[in-house]
């Protein structure tokens, strides 16, 4: 009976928490939130998973290799948006170039969304990486011990 209640609750909440993180990610322009917060909430879903099922299980779901790639990819995504605007003829991170004809600044909107996505990916993967490395050095905590 190793923490049945916790396991059931975590299973129930896991997908909704991830969805909440993505909601915060994509509604950064309309309400509070954005990439930083979304990345952290995303990581929290996996923290919960690790608490209830053990770190080894979590590493199977989201291996360290994927996180390392995501860390770099997120940062590159941000910087790449800037380079893309340069290639389109503007300054670095001048989002208006993405859609210069738009009358309601759609280019700025898309640019912000792209950049926030890069932030979110980097933050989520970095937080999980640090978590893996801090807790992964200890032998896993026995379920009966808490």
């Amino acid at each position: 009976m190793d923490h049945l209640i916790l396991k059931v609750t975590t299973k129930l909440l896991f997908a909704p928490i991830i969805l909440f993180a993505l909601y915060v990610q994509f509604h950064g322009d309309y309400g509070p939130g954005g990439g930083f917060q979304a990345g952290v909430i995303f990581a929290v879903a996996f923290f919960l998973h690790a608490f209830c099922f053990g770190l080894a299980e979590t590493k199977k779901v989201l291996p360290q290799k994927a996180l390392t790639i995501a860390m770099v990819a997120g940062l590159m995504f941000y910087a790449g948006t800037g380079v893309a605007t340069q290639l389109l003829g503007g300054n670095f991170l001048a989002y208006t170039e993405i859609d210069p004809e738009s009358t309601h600044h759609a280019g700025q909107h898309y640019g912000i969304l792209l950049v926030e996505w890069g932030v979110g990916v980097t933050v989520a993967s970095t937080m999980l990486t640090i978590f893996y490395h801090f807790t992964g050095r200890e032998p896993d905590i026995d379920q009966e011990d808490w």
Partner: peptide
């Protein structure tokens, strides 16, 4: 409603163990 009993139970269980 879902999480507060779980947290309470976790505290009680950890203290008991």
């Amino acid at each position: 409603f879902l999480t507060s009993p779980v947290a309470t139970h976790a505290v009680a269980h950890a203290a008991w163990m």
